[in-house]
């Protein structure tokens, strides 16, 4: 038996789905953020897989950019969370619903 690209891609799909479920069921904004990281990793994994399978290094470059943007996003996102948490230390994502129409 040989490990084909499909194995990696299925793993990536499962990882992504776990991230989705986590994002939807957790209420702690920090954990929700981690779930987003999970999904990004799933995508990165599929990028590398395709890069390897299609013999194209462009996929790896895409991963590089995803990493950079993820880093920037985490920095800003965490700063937002800090700003919120400083005012309301116990807030969950559900408590922050002031934008309700």
């Amino acid at each position: 038996m040989e490990i084909t690209a499909n194995w990696y891609l299925i793993l990536s799909a499962v990882l992504f789905s776990i991230g989705v479920v986590g994002l939807l069921i957790r209420r702690n904004p920090l954990v929700m953020f981690m779930c987003v990281e999970l999904m990004l990793n799933a995508v990165n994994l599929s990028f590398v897989t395709f890069s390897n399978a299609l013999n194209d290094v462009g996929g790896q470059v895409a991963v590089f950019f995803v990493l950079v943007v993820a880093a920037a996003e985490v920095v800003v996102g965490l700063a937002v969370i800090v700003a919120i948490m400083r005012r309301r230390p116990t807030a969950t994502a559900d408590d922050l619903s002031v934008l309700a129409g």
């Binding site: 994002l23 209420r27 929700m32 559900d94 619903s97 934008l99 309700a100 129409g101």
Partner: peptide
């Protein structure tokens, strides 16, 4: 406006 619940997780669900 009923769709704008303000709940982040509702929006995430919409995204998925």
């Amino acid at each position: 406006r009923r769709f704008q619940t303000g709940y982040l997780r509702n929006y995430a669900f919409g995204l998925s």
